[in-house]
Design a binder for these strands. Structure first.
Lengths: 236, 236
DNA sequence: GCTCATTTGTCCGTATGTATT
DNA sequence: GAATACATACGGACAAATGAG
């Protein structure tokens, strides 16, 4: 049973997304929502606070709660949004993923230090290439602490690994640190990507942590310069 | 008068930052905090929720509230953290800012469309170069809708423009959209930056909006490839 | 496996303050 | 000034998760 405040939240999100509550319009007041959902004021307020946290509305003391324009929300698919990810959602491009390798290696001292495990600990390494409209433009290297992501197979790596972790393993992801920088292309980059003469690649290093604080993954995502784009929205 | 829940929040932040409440330790329970601060449970909970939102603690039903390690917080300087910004805070580098120009231009049809104003509207344009350890590595172009940021001078541009907006003008910034991508270096890039033969620059386009929703600024920050780094933390 | 105390999560009702119209 | 709407604060009750015994 979902908490009541989340049910109210969800129904309001639905109304915003299906156009019942278009941008700029005022939400019903807290008192009206109390009666409509037969809830206390605190419960209604919690739902509205969640809406504001997610960027759907903005509250103004004395005036009311107003729906924000959708483009800001659409912009807000946070997480890493590369050229491919952004356009895959639009359905405009032909994107394929090839798993080059999926094997268990032993943690080097460097990896052991990174993940806070002992050297020799099994690490699952996945290398993938993403092809967009016939050009190989993204080269991904995933490293997982094997014991923290059991049962990972090549088939799963082709689909969404995060979906596997959250739904099949039932573990909750807490936060991810990201770093974006440019690096000179390596031999491996040149081997697996269609670099077309560019000397550098954009590297996104992503470290992901479970709710309990365990660092279970590092992913290096290496993008061809001209096919890279990252968008983000920062709220105060 | 600061609200009580923010006072409690602030005191707890202080304890975390000065080491009274080190990482991994458990906060006093809600009941204990109620007595200590002579507040109701709801007020104490609001303070703790704020702590969790800012990434200081993590709540666990049935267990308690635990202080998170500081490195995740230190990492969490949101906003754009380029090579220079990150290292200026460390005080390790010699960073200077030169204002190349600061003038009022008329909005082209393109700019008018971007800011939702009529063509010809005054736009304040500031061009700056950031020099780090003697190398010119960042070229910034700021565009402000003049009427929304009145009184902007060359002197202010040398210091922090955001500080001027929030403190002197007393306006609140709501959110910023960011885009990061690579572009071929322009002639202007080559003129103002020490590119050392690199063909591309990293461009960060930043659009900033006031609380009321007005789009008042676009900044293009053009970085030399090898001196660029962006870090970020994404929480679920 | 079960009970029990502890701790956080949800929900309700009420009162008062502050900003806007 | 009055009415409306959100902000803060208090109190009480029960549910759900955790850990100790």
């Amino acid at each position: 049973m979902m908490p009541k405040y989340l049910q109210i939240y969800q129904q309001l999100v639905d109304r915003i997304q299906n156009g019942t509550l278009p941008a700029e319009t005022k939400l019903p007041s807290e008192t009206e929502l109390m009666h409509e959902f037969d809830a206390s004021r605190g419960t209604v307020r919690k739902a509205i606070d969640a809406l504001q946290d997610k960027g759907f509305v903005r509250k103004h003391q004395g005036k009311g709660v107003f729906v924000l324009s959708q483009d800001a929300i659409a912009f807000q698919f946070n997480g890493i949004v590369s050229f491919s990810e952004a356009h895959r959602q639009m359905g405009q491009h032909d994107v394929t993923t090839d798993v080059l390798s999926c094997e268990v290696i032993e943690a080097t001292t460097e990896l052991a230090h990174l993940f806070h495990v002992t050297p020799g600990t099994p690490i699952t390494q996945v290398k993938r290439v993403r092809t967009i409209d016939g050009e190989r433009v993204i080269f991904d290297i995933n490293l997982f602490v094997s014991s923290l992501v059991p049962g990972l197979t090549k088939e799963i790596a082709t689909e969404s690994i995060y979906q596997y972790i959250e739904q099949t393993l039932g573990r909750q992801i807490s936060y991810a640190k990201r770093k974006i920088e440019a690096q000179p292309a390596t031999e491996e980059d040149r081997k697996y990507l269609d670099l077309e003469g560019t000397s550098h690649v954009i590297v996104i290093t992503n470290d992901t942590y479970y709710y309990e604080g365990q660092h279970f993954e590092r992913t290096e995502s290496r993008h061809r310069l001209d096919k890279f784009q990252f968008t983000d929205i920062a709220r105060r």
